[in-house]
Amino acid sequence: MKILITTFGRDEAKLNVARRDIGYEKLVIITDAPELDAFKKIREMESITGTEVELIKVDSYDFMGCFNKIGETIEKYKNHDVRFNTSGGPKILSAAALLMCFNKGIPAYHSEEKTYKLPVIKGVSFEEKINRDERKILKNIKKECEAEKIKKKTGFSGRKFDILLMEMSRKGIAKMDYNGKTRIMLTPIGEYFRKKM
């Protein structure tokens, strides 16, 4: 089934362009304002053709909350043909959707007056770039901790552990603080991947 997931805000103009240009059999609307007329209008229009509309409510001031909710929604429809319109709603909701589409390799569109297909590589996920050893380290970090403790827990040799930390830092998964004892801190994307494990 073709599922169009879309971010949505206070007016329906952009979503109308997306509804015209992107095929779908079910519409999933992610919004912080379902109580407004715009959402009601869309639901009313879709009821004419009997198209199912699902509502996902988010708090658009909470970026990571939006990001995670969008990720869960995509996961829910992983066995379907998912396409995502990222143009609706507050900027921060759009940004969360854009990042998640690239993160998960979901075809993404940006509908304004016309619809742009974004250069997402379908089916290619950022997670693929994290190898088994890095995952092992990630699993053992709780947001921020001493590198020495993680080294003991994971059993990597000193040199290999240092190389892995450098690589994780280069990829933006973790940051190091070398003030006295080396500490590892997860970045927001590192934290997201750790939670998913």
Partner: peptide
């Protein structure tokens, strides 16, 4: 990064540092 409207603080966006 973006500046959170509510707190006025800068927040880092979850982005892997690998060229696409």
């Amino acid at each position: 990064v973006y500046c959170n409207e509510k707190t006025g603080k800068e927040e880092t966006l979850p982005l892997l540092q690998i060229r696409y």
